[in-house]
Nucleic acid binder design. Structure first.
Lengths: 173, 173
DNA sequence: GGAAAACCGTTACATCCGCAACGAGTTCGA
DNA sequence: TCGAACTCGTTGCGGATGTAACGGTTTTCC
């Protein structure tokens, strides 16, 4: 039949054996090792980290990921519009709209109309919102520090370099 | 008032000014720069790459991301079960179930019952499925090569090192 | 031998998401 | 000056997703 990638299909998970050096020897031109494919590895890594971090603010505050990003953006700039939130946090405007409404219902943010351009509304943190924002920032810093420690200083440094390359070379949106 | 992150809220996008050295000088303990936060950067990078790559197989074949991953996994091993697909491609079993059905309706895959364990069904590529798989593998290799070229050899190498650290240090699921 | 637990793949349901369209407001240009 | 084009934020809608439950099957363990 056709050529089989790994010997034992019942214990698949990492399955590196067949794809270790990836060039000479095997010459497996027909097959792609998904676990070595850069876009997949990137997506998987992001998902793992994101999920691990999300567990923190979800358990403690019941925040969703869009809500966390929105809060983080509003806290970073005080007084900001929905469109700017979307641009800064790479989120679709409908996602922002829904997250803002959710945060408003918690009384973590408040909106004010712009006196000159009445299409715009400015968003600010309430006192309560600021308090929770500070806690969440501390939590985020803690997680990031733990993550860097897990990855090792060089691992983290290399990751940041690689991400920097993507950020500068890929189309922003 | 509170301290403002960047000077000009109307031109926000990268907003590096306020967070460049990130330690001394500013002492911005209260605020987190989202664009410097590792989980966010990772998620954003993955999303950009994934979207750019997905555009290829979506335009040419109308495949979804779960379908592409499923196809890639089936092609990598010939004859595999749905559970194993999920484990190998980091997808939820319902995602796999739906992707498999979609691929079956295209006549790209076929299922056979296991003679001894009747809970299991083995999935294989049809002749047509193999043909498209080979084309998609070529497309994937091309994209990956282009991506590495965009990132530069060192950028890509560093990215791979960083991803390797995540893969070995983070909980698999 | 047989009940309980575990496993496989599917599906009902609630939720999330982005596209497209909307009303309201502003800017542009003839 | 007035209408076309654009912007802002919201929402209807269809499609995608994960949770929980399901029927069918196998394994475990008493």
């Amino acid at each position: 039949m056709t050529l089989r990638s790994a010997g034992n299909p019942t214990s698949i998970v990492p399955t590196r054996p067949a794809s270790a050096p990836s060039s000479l020897c095997g010459r497996d031109d027909e097959t792609l090792a998904l676990e070595d494919f850069l876009p997949y590895r990137l997506a998987r890594a992001a998902e793992m980290v994101s999920k691990q971090f999300a567990a923190h603010y979800r358990e403690q505050y019941g925040l969703t990921r869009p809500e966390w990003r929105t809060l983080a953006t509003i806290g970073q700039f005080d007084r900001i519009t929905a469109t700017e939130i979307g641009r800064h946090s790479s989120m679709h405007k409908t996602k922002v709209s829904r997250a803002v409404r959710a945060l408003e219902q918690r009384n973590w943010i408040a909106r004010t109309d712009d006196p000159v351009d009445r299409r715009i509304e400015h968003i600010v943190l309430t006192r309560e919102g600021k308090r929770h924002y500070r806690e969440l920032v501390r939590m985020a810093r803690d997680y990031e520090a733990r993550l860097v420690r897990m990855l090792g200083t060089t691992g983290a440094k290399h990751l940041e370099t690689g991400l920097g390359a993507i950020e500068t070379e890929l189309p922003g949106d």
